[in-house]
Structures are given as structure tokens and as C-alpha cells.
Nucleic acid binder design. Sequence first.
DNA 1: GCAAATTTGTTCGTATGTATT
DNA 2: CAATACATACGAACAAATTTG
Lengths: 269, 269
Amino acid sequence: MPDPMWKQIAEDLRQKIESGVLGSDGKPLPTELELQADYSASRNTVRDAIKWLVGRNLVYTRSGQGTFVAPKVDPFVTKLVAGSQSSAEGDSQAFTAEVLGLRRLPTVSLPRVEILAATGLPARELAVPRGTTVISRHQQRYIDGVPYSRQTTFYPMHLVERGAARLINAEDIREGAVHYLERELGIREAGWRDRFNVRLPDQDEGAFFSLPDDGRIPVFEIVRTGYDDSGIPLRVTVTTYPADRNQFVMEFGRVPGVPASDRSEGSHE
Amino acid sequence: MPDPMWKQIAEDLRQKIESGVLGSDGKPLPTELELQADYSASRNTVRDAIKWLVGRNLVYTRSGQGTFVAPKVDPFVTKLVAGSQSSAEGDSQAFTAEVLGLRRLPTVSLPRVEILAATGLPARELAVPRGTTVISRHQQRYIDGVPYSRQTTFYPMHLVERGAARLINAEDIREGAVHYLERELGIREAGWRDRFNVRLPDQDEGAFFSLPDDGRIPVFEIVRTGYDDSGIPLRVTVTTYPADRNQFVMEFGRVPGVPASDRSEGSHE
DNA sequence: GCAAATTTGTTCGTATGTATT
DNA sequence: CAATACATACGAACAAATTTG
């Protein structure tokens, strides 16, 4: 059974795009009417083909203008630090990470601090009953002005009651919240667990990252739960990154040099 | 500006699905004809709404049968080991990982071994010129019979020339290829770098994992490059996992207990 | 095993709305 | 304002897959 016509058209266009016949990076494709004539198909069928290409991020459409070849993105490479460099952690680095690459300017929003009742994930990770009061500190991070990640850290309220008052100030904790807790309360983060996950963005994330609504681009979600010496959760940080422009690198043991910022391509058998 | 009608229908159905009004896990939705009547819309408009739901993995359709509420998946949780437990590595664990959870039976295919000319990623990561001969060892892994991951490890040919003959045997290296190299040649893997990436599956991966062709489900790609004491690449392992049923966990320092196999849900502000 | 009924999949045509130039 | 191009919506017909009688 042959592929449906829309799929054949889509594959033909894909091949033409990837081989560069249709130009690259912002070059307009023929209009739907022209494609309709080229392939002797109805406009709706051509549109089905274009929809498939849009879903693969090969083209994008703009009302009233046309359909264009999508540019290849140069991904941000975030290095997740495995060692215990956490002393250098700032609030803006509450999720210990480092953006690699030259000529890239990271900026961070001021934290938005909320006092709220723990639900779902925060309650579970902090091992407190639902409804327990927790502190939430939320920040948005940009690279070269482009939204890069959002993160929210939840702390149990008893940390404030025991003296860590700055947790409820809407100001950056320059030395790093984890380090602040250690200096102020003598509570050390003895270890942490990271969970990696990929899921579709919720509405807020979609708006912040300007992601399309069609579920074509997922987000990385990294949940980092930190524990003190007794194994009691100290904090949980949820960070999300759009998956279309982010990569993560981790290193263990002795590793030479700086990783080239390469985007892997397809299969390698 | 109100949402288009197909979107309103989609949102209404989404709400009905998530609140359980339409039943769960395999319950059929009303047929397109019924929905057409319910919403006073054309069949094509109803179909646009359903397409959106399919894209979010909320429903799936089966020709000749109907549209059904998609089951929630219980994800595999893979633990990426950060320490140097690599001595316990088998070929089937060449990518040091551990599947968490009870009642889960991992199985591994026999390796498919190929001798080929390095291209693209393998050449780059092994720091050899394109065209250099390398060994490729490919394996497929299943959990409870469900395709779980595919991985290909590339080794420089000179390892075989220096005595590591078993690399080119299509048999599992039980003690682990990395350990075998150390015992046989005295070459130790002093460190490694992991790159995490999310991309759409290629054709092979789509077929192996039974992923839909519409680009709705991406794959995790983890590229692990191992280096010897002098910083020379020893091997590069490319492992892919379908993103819809996999999560990754890493732990650093002292972390209590076993992580609950929770799926995070939505936003947590 | 076959035929009918049901349901989704594909393709066409057409009309109108909205965004951009 | 007009022209162009994509977006939405309707209606219709037939194909393909599946279940049922």
C-alpha cells in the first residue's frame, strides 16, 4: 500500500528542504496554491503535508506571508556539575549548572517568593503532608535575551522559623541559598537526587518560552531534591527548559578539554 | 478573539477526559458522528479537535474502531550511576544504568557487531578522521518485553589490534567491555562525558520502539564518551530511549532511600 | 468464510475569515 | 484600500480497517 498523497508530498518536500534545493533558513516555500499545482493535489492535501513538516520543525508558517524553511538552532549546552562545587552556588544557580559557549550572556529575573500550601510534587519530594506551608522561590533565566529556563525551589517553612529569614525575601541570595542555609543554620546539603523527565509544556511554560500550542516541542523537567545529613529533604528545585534548544552535559572522573557544542545528527550505525 | 471552534471542542473534551467524565484508560469516546451532533460542527472540525488531543497523547484512534482515552503510562526509571561502580559493568550495561522498580524484567539482545568507517558523531567523539575504521557494537534492550532502549558503542580499531579481540565477537562481554579493556590491555577508563539530548526518532528508532510517525514522541539520546588516563577517547556509546515512557535519576552525595517512581505532573507554582 | 454495518482515514471542492504587505 | 497567503469551517464522497451477524 503506498503512502497517502499528503505523506508523499511531505516526504518530497522534506528531501528538497534537507538537500537545500528550497534554500535554507527563512527562505519561503512555494505558496500553497503553487504547491497545489505542482503536485496536482487539492489545497487541503498540500496543507496536510505542510502540517507534517511543521510538526517536525522543518518549516514554519506565518499568516499572510507564507511558509518558510526553519533555521537550524544552535542549542544551549548546560553543564550539570557533578562535583561538590556547590559552595559557589548562587540563588540564580540554585540549580547548579553552567552554560557553555562564548558570546552568551545569561541574565536572571528577580525571584518571586510565595508562601503556599504544598501540593503534589513539592509535598511528595519534601516528604510533608499536603497542605503544609512551604516557601516557593521562582526565577526565570534568559540567555542573550532568549527565555532559557524557569525554576521554582520549594523550602520547608521550618527553615525560616529556625532563622533563615532571607528565604522569604524577594531578593537574590548571592552566596546561594544552599550555602546560606549552611552558614545560618549549620544545615548542610549532604546529597541530592536529580530526576530527568520530558513532558509537554503547561500553559505558563508555553507562554514564557513562546512555544507553539500544538504540543510539538516538549520541555525538559529536572527535579532536584536536596537532603541534609539525616536524609531529611531540604529543598526541591524544579527547572524546565524547552527541549528544542537545550542540551545537557555531565562529566565524571577525568575528562579532557571543553566539549564541542555539537548537535548530534540522526542515526549512527 | 475567541479560540477557533476546533480548539474549543478540543479543550472541552480535554477537560472531560481529565476529570474522568469520559472514563479512563481505553474507554471509547463518542464517535465522530456523535461529536459532530453534540457540538453542531462539521465532521472535519471535530476531527481537527481530535487531532489536537492525539498530539497531546490524551487519546488514540484506531481505524474502524473509534477514539479511546489513552492510558497513563507507568514510566521506566533509569538510574544513571555517577560513582565508579563501572567494575560491575557488563556489555549489557555498557551504558551504566539500572532500571528501578519491582516486577520488571530486563532482557537484552545479542550484540550486532560491525566494522565500519567512522562518520559524523563517532568520528568526532573518538577524535579520529572520517573514514577511520571503527568497531560498532549494537544492542537492543527490553523491559517486560517492551522495547526500552537501543544502544550502539563505537571503539577505535586499534584496541583490537592491540589485543582486545573479543570486541569483534558477536557475544556479550559479561564482565563488561570497559572492564575487559582494563584487564586485557591495562587501559583504564579514567572518566566520561554524558550528553543529554532530545530529538525526534529516525526511521529505525521509530520502527523499533513502535513510535507514531507524526513526530509526537521524541527520544532521549545520551552520548557517553569514555576517556583513558591520557585523555584519549576509548569509546563512545549512543543510547536512545523513547521519551514517553522513560525517566532518569541521578544521585550525588548522600541520598536516602529509594525514590518513589512518581511521574511529575504539570506545573507546581 | 462472507457480507453488512460501523468507524476512522483520505481527498476533493468551496466559502469565508484574518493577517500582512 | 487592494492583493496575497495562510487559517478555519463546511459538505461530500470514497477508501480502509474492524467488528458483528
